[in-house]
Design a binder for these strands. Structure first.
Length: 447
RNA sequence: GAGGUUGUAGCUCAGUCGGUUAGAGCGUCGGUUUGUGGUUCCGAAGGUCGGGGGUUCGAGACCCCUCAUCCUCCCCA
């Protein structure tokens, strides 16, 4: 016999969990719809070429590849096979992979359908993604993302609206969050001001860790990554500036840096007259790993709960360019549904009635009563009541226990008396109150 | 990719220095004499101690390998 198991980093979702997850999906979806976004779904697998090279070196390593069907070794590169060069070999034995996020498949879709879409094209997408990461707290190998993106406009209106979407969705879930915003152009401006434009990526990964390792740690990391001391001094000074306005003089010689500041200013200005319920904060250390971001970038974290970011996103000026259609600027954000789930669970923020599935259960004493119950159930359902019949007549104790365990709020008892009077005896499981009525009235009272 | 943690009943875990027939709580099932559950009482079922190898008169415990798990780093949602 074999002990059943599921792959590392994956989970089953029981009835309760699916219901809670749907609550998150429904909440964000209704906000997306309110802002005019349309639904889209794409396949779980993409051609590997679509995925590789979009997420940076680290991202490529975390792609799940799908082994070719049939005799895959026939097409394998013999040299790579002999020399055990996995990277090279993979390219010849796997031509498909599981999607790593929803943004890149979206860009692929837009390019393939550009003739029929009207721009700006706004879509939302709620689907699982897969990453071959090492699982740990708040990190899974299969997890759901809820993405909203708009492509085909570089208007900063959308940056502002995405902030509002984050704000409203989390407010609706009663989850206090901090929305952090930065701009990749600002980060580039820092690199230019420090005279290390060629070490841009090294710099961003180092300063991204500021809140984790402190200024000392950042200094050390920059040093290890070969950034000269003079440049480190400039970076440190910038990290200490309180707001983005005061970066202006420092960026005097960085056209890109100034452009980034201008963009941030515009977003804040648009939002200035529409109050947010959550905190929006400029954070110069926010970097974001995905290499396709070019403008504003966002990240959301829960205020009262220890968890990595529960959402992130940003502006990508030319993601469709790699698919042969340049000049389509896009911006979007993602909600990490599984982490949001963990946070809501940890803070006990799921609504209470979420586990209620069926309104009433019919219990019966004997075979005639059971058959009568079956008829009553049909009538109740016709009246729009969700109802369940206990599968066999008999002892009430058993039937009541089942109803209690399932969290069914009402139980109707059916025996000779009820059949004679053509009524149901209904018990409110919470209060213990009991009343009798005919089927029509019962349906009315439960509605 | 690197480091560590933990694997004993369906679940959460005890199990002393290596010593007889491996325990508890919760859950499950049955009963408490047949029209009322979430409370009490009684009873029962349920274990290849993750798997394989080794040391020993003797291994759940010690050693090696392996698989799984959770956590940390890297990176990320």
């Amino acid at each position: 016999m074999q002990k059943p198991s599921i792959p590392e980093g994956t989970r089953d979702f029981g009835p309760e969990q699916v219901r809670k997850r749907s609550y998150i999906f429904d909440t964000v979806r209704s906000v997306f719809v309110k802002f005019g976004f349309q639904p889209l779904e794409t396949p779980a697998m993409e051609n590997l070429g679509t995925l590789t090279g979009k997420y940076g070196e680290e991202g490529d390593k975390l792609l799940f590849k799908i082994l070719n069907n049939g005799d895959f070794l026939v097409g394998a590169d013999p040299e790579a096979l002999a020399s055990k060069n996995s990277t090279k070999l993979t390219a010849t034995i796997a031509k498909r992979g599981l999607r790593y996020d929803l943004t890149v498949p979206f860009a692929r879709y837009v390019v393939m359908n550009r003739g029929t879409l009207s721009f700006p094209f706004k879509r939302y997408q709620i689907q699982p993604v897969w990453r071959a990461d090492r699982p740990q707290r708040g990190r899974y190998r299969e997890f759901f993302q809820c993405d909203v993106d708009v492509i085909g406009s570089d208007s900063l209106l959308y940056e502002a609206e995405l902030v509002q979407i984050y704000d409203e969705a989390f407010a609706n879930m009663k989850l206090p969050v901090v929305i952090k915003i930065n701009n990749r152009k600002v980060l580039f401006g820092i690199a230019e001001a420090a005279g290390i434009a060629d070490q841009f990526t090294n710099m961003t990964v180092a300063i991204d860790k500021l809140d984790k390792v402190g200024i000392e740690g950042v200094r050390k990391e920059l040093n290890e990554r070969g950034v000269p001391d003079t440049a480190i001094a400039v970076i440190e000074k910038i990290l200490k500036t309180p707001d983005f306005q005061s970066l202006k003089p420092i960026f005097a010689n960085s056209e890109t840096g100034l452009k980034g500041l201008e963009e941030l200013e515009r977003v804040f200005q648009l939002l200035s007259k529409s109050p947010l319920r959550n905190e929006l904060k400029f954070d110069v250390t926010l970097a974001r790993g995905l290499s396709y971001y070019t403008g504003c970038i966002f990240e959301v974290s829960a205020k009262d709960y220890q968890m990595g970011s529960i959402g992130g996103g940003g502006r990508y000026a030319d993601l469709t360019g790699v698919f042969g259609v340049p000049g389509l600027s896009g911006v979007g954000v993602s909600f990490g549904a599984d982490r949001i789930y963990d946070v809501l669970e940890g803070l006990n923020l799921f609504p209470e009635n979420i586990s209620e599935s069926v309104k009433i259960m019919l219990a019966s004493f004997d075979e005639p009563a059971f058959e009568y119950a079956f008829q009553c159930a049909t009538e109740l359902r016709a009246a729009g009541v969700s109802v369940e019949v206990y599968p066999e007549p008999g002892k009430l104790k058993k039937q009541f226990e089942y109803a209690a365990k399932r969290g069914i709020p009402f139980v109707a008892i059916i025996g000779e008396r009820e059949m004679e009077s053509k009524t149901l005896t209904v018990k409110d499981q919470k209060s213990g109150e009991q009343w009798s009525a005919n089927v029509g009235e019962v349906a009315k009272r439960l509605a």
